[in-house]
Amino acid sequence: MEITFNHFLILSAILFGLGLYAMISRRNAILVLMGIELILNSANINLIAFSKFGALGVDGQMISIFVIILAVAEAAIALAIILNLYNNILTVNIDEANTMKD
């Protein structure tokens, strides 16, 4: 059976769903960050599949390089924010970070 374009797209859709589930339901902020990494990787799979099967050519791979660069910057900033949160309220559970509410 030939592997077609749709196989890659469906795989990345499932990966996107798993990352979305991690973003919605995990309590630990670092695991939310892991969900974001899964979603960015599914976007990269889509871009590179379009670059092989679609009319995108090597430009798709260039765009995925920029996605990787932005993922690195985002991970560094988010971890700095999480460490600062831990220094202030001694937890990284996102449902306990509600000190601005009261």
Binding site: L33, N41, A71, V72, I82
Partner: peptide, 16 residues
């Protein structure tokens, strides 16, 4: 990803 981001995430887990 594996050499950078994942090591950073594990650092974050260990520190928090």
């Amino acid at each position: 990803y594996i050499g950078g981001i994942l090591v950073l995430l594990i650092f974050g887990i260990m520190l928090t």
